[in-house]
Simulated assay, not measured.
Amino acid sequence: MEEVKVYGAWGSPPSHRVEIALKLKGVKYEFIEEDLKNKSEELLKYNPVHKKIPVLVHNGRPIAESLVILEYIDEIWKQCPLLPTDPYDRAQTRFWAKFIAEKITPAVRDAMLIPGEDAEKKTEELIELLHILEKEIKEKKFVGGNRNKYMDIVSLYVIHWIPILQEYSSKHVLTREKFPGIYDWIDQVLLDCGDIMENLPDKNKMFDVLRVIFGPRNNYKPT
Rank of each mutant, 00 (worst) to 15 (best):
L83E: 03
E102G: 09
D89H: 15
I69T: 09
F95W: 07
I53H: 13
C80G: 05
K52G: 10
I114E: 03
R90A: 04
T93R: 03
V108S: 02
T93A: 15
E102A: 11
Y88V: 13
P48T: 11
G116D: 05
V55S: 06
R109W: 12
E102C: 14
H50E: 12
P106E: 09
N59T: 08
R61I: 15
P62H: 08
K45P: 10
I114P: 00
A111V: 03
T93D: 02
I53Y: 08
C80L: 10
A97Y: 00
Y72F: 15
F99Q: 01
A107P: 00
I104Q: 00
K98G: 09
P84Y: 12
D74S: 05
Q92S: 11
L83Y: 09
K45G: 06
P81V: 14
I53D: 12
R109T: 15
T93K: 02
A111Q: 01
R109C: 08
D110N: 11
R94F: 01
N59W: 08
A111W: 02
E117S: 11
I53L: 06
V68S: 15
T85W: 11
E102W: 00
I114C: 01
D110M: 10
E65I: 04
K51P: 07
P115W: 02
P48F: 06
D86I: 08
H50P: 05
E102L: 14
L56E: 07
L82Q: 05
Y72R: 09
Y72M: 03
Y72S: 06
R90V: 05
P106D: 06
I100V: 13
S66L: 04
E102T: 14
A64Q: 14
K78Q: 15
A101Y: 03
P115D: 11
F95R: 01
N59G: 10
I76D: 06
C80Y: 13
I63K: 10
P84W: 13
